[in-house]
Amino acid sequence: MPNDVFVVAEHLKNKLSDVTFEMLGKGREIADACGGKLVAVVLGSGTKDLAAQLGVADSVISVDDPALEHFSPEAYRIVLSSVVKDRQPKLTLIANTSMGMDLAAPLSAELNIPLVAYCKGLSADSGNVSVTSQLYAGKVDVESSITSAQAIISVLAGSFAGDAGRSERTPSIEEVRPSTSLNDLRVKFRRLVEPEPSDVDITKEEKLVSIGRGIQSQDNIALAEELAAALGGAISASRPIIDNGWLPKSRQVGKSGMSVKPKLYLTLGISGAPEHVEGMKDAATIIAVNTDPRAPIFDIADYAVVGDLFDIVPALTERIKGAKG
């Protein structure tokens, strides 16, 4: 319907991801402002329990089929595309996550509906929708207005409050069958690959010293390790450190790594790209060391040290050792 807001629920291993509730909370507000309904769309197999958690929505469209048991870029796109084509919602909110990236853009191209991605802000005023997108790794925002009858918006995780998207209410669920066959597709799910078990679980550590590309070389990691040891914490890292093979994947913080919530998160040479921030913004105390005074990490840090980590870290390690006696 012309004023409806659809939210595509995202789930993995039978658990809805937080961004689903964040989108539902925001979607509720937008649907009300536009005089439309909020509809959650769940694709999967045996997802009754999941659908039941979407009570903030006026209704849930559930496409339950064995072929949808695991996320598939192809099967999910085919089904979602036919749902959106059929129902013509004003807005379709899709998470700007790994899964969402395989849905939002292809849907936009296929259905010729405009897409506004990297959404971190969304508002509606007398039916006029305005979207704020986060660009340039968090350094610049762009606000745009939707000028067409329909749009797809891909929403960054952590942008909206999740509480507004949760409700005890039981939603009305409409079962929908896939309109085309999902056999003989070109993308086949094989298996989930779990991370290697690791010595340290960074999600359980109270103090993390987190290193980024500013550390420059694998040899320099010892500096950070010494600091972490003095503090009684562990080291974690941004993605490039892991991609370089300098630390195991289990130490990665961020969108495709771990989400951490330590008492102390001390960053050394991390710029604060949105994909990193997503995994650590809820740390209780954030101290950031970076040579660039404009680094986005300072926008979410509690304490900012504009300086060279190679000057600060040795001095700090020494002081901490001294303080502990």
């Binding site: 598939s72 870029p73 790994s98 993308v187 086949k188 094989r190 298996r191 991370p195 994947k249 495709s256």
Partner: peptide, 17 residues
């Protein structure tokens, strides 16, 4: 055969024609 990254270090393996 591709690996697609999800959150938390989990990946999905797909076979793609």
């Amino acid at each position: 055969i591709v690996h697609k990254e999800y959150a938390g270090g989990v990946m999905a393996e797909f076979e793609v024609v």
